[in-house]
Computed example of a mutant assay.
Amino acid sequence: MRYVTPAWRLWAEKHRSQLGQVVFFMDDDLFDLRAHAGLPLRYRWKLYRQAWQHQAWFKKMGAQLWVSTPWLAEKYAGWQPTVLQPQSPYSGLGSGLSVQKTLFYHGSASHKSEFEWLYPVFEQVLSQEPTLSVELIGNSKVRNRFAALPRVHVLHPMKWPAYQALLARPGRTIGLAPLLDNGFNAARAPTKFFDITQAGAVGIYADHPVYRPLVRHEHNGLLLPMKQQVWVDAILRLSKDDSTREMIRENAKKISHA
């Protein structure tokens, strides 16, 4: 543990006889208040409250001290600390996790309903396919809404030149363009087709009057009804089918660059 809370202390004291070993791991200089000078006051208070003030308690509990650097080991040599050598957190990951495919939805404040509609879609897809990550554009409400899901990255809204540069960077696999049937959406243009194609991705689009004139199903995109399980199945299938993605992508580029 790095930080100690009252609940942790009570639990450890209650079950100390059943614990073979108690270890405090320190990867910053948490026990010297002078080293905290210049840090934000709120962060300094956290270090004091959840680490510094528990030094006597650690010794009472017979805790071992593990540290992240020889510098810390020398400074706190009286505790006879163990230095943990740094290791890559990425070693040992399967090949499926080493190369991620990016599934993205670049919505705006006017797409609140679509964000909500996509939540269970992402939830299922991410739980079933570890090679997929999700990229969203949204505000703090979007970030908080999707915080519980793994491998979701939320980018801040940006100005048009920055967004153009973002789309020009490679690495995106599948772009999503859901569209719920309401009065506001009826007036939209199919601009997401061009955004998704510019990003080098294959698009999955709502089977909606906005996209029907432009998207031919399984030719230059997928045109799907707004049924969440249908989208989940299509995303999973498309993510595994490299040849189909390449064919659809090339057909979409011919229209986008015409």
Rank of each mutant, 00 (worst) to 15 (best):
L179V: 01
W71Q: 14
T173W: 09
E218L: 02
K60H: 11
V22E: 01
R9Q: 10
L10A: 13
A77F: 00
E246H: 13
Q85D: 11
V134A: 04
R188Y: 01
W231I: 00
R16F: 07
E246S: 13
E129S: 13
L30K: 04
A148H: 13
Q228I: 00
P190T: 07
L155C: 09
G92Q: 09
S127L: 10
D242T: 12
R245H: 08
P178E: 03
Q50K: 08
W117M: 10
K60E: 15
R44N: 05
Y119F: 14
Q64K: 15
T191E: 03
A63N: 05
I204Y: 03
A37G: 08
Q18M: 10
T173R: 09
G20A: 12
V142T: 13
R34F: 05
P170T: 06
R16D: 08
L103E: 01
Y119H: 12
V202M: 08
T69S: 15
D28S: 09
S243T: 14
Q198A: 15
V22W: 11
V4P: 00
K227A: 15
W11N: 07
P190Y: 09
L136W: 04
H36N: 09
R172D: 04
Q128P: 00
G94K: 10
T197E: 02
W231Y: 09
K227Q: 15
M61W: 09
K59W: 11
L238N: 07
W57V: 03
Y105T: 01
W71G: 04
Y205W: 09
L176G: 04
D242L: 13
Q21A: 06
K227H: 15
P120Q: 06
S98H: 14
H208V: 00
A165F: 03
W57H: 05
Y43R: 14
A147E: 10
W117V: 05
L180N: 02
Q100W: 07
Y163F: 15
F115N: 05
S110L: 12
Q100I: 02
T197K: 03
P70Q: 11
A51V: 11
V23N: 12
H208T: 00
E114Y: 06
V210I: 08
K227T: 06
L72E: 00
D181H: 10
Q87V: 12
I235G: 03
S140E: 14
F25R: 00
H208D: 01
L97P: 01
A186H: 12
G183I: 01
K14H: 11
Q53P: 04
L166E: 09
M247F: 05
D181V: 00
E246K: 14
A186F: 07
A234H: 08
Q55G: 01
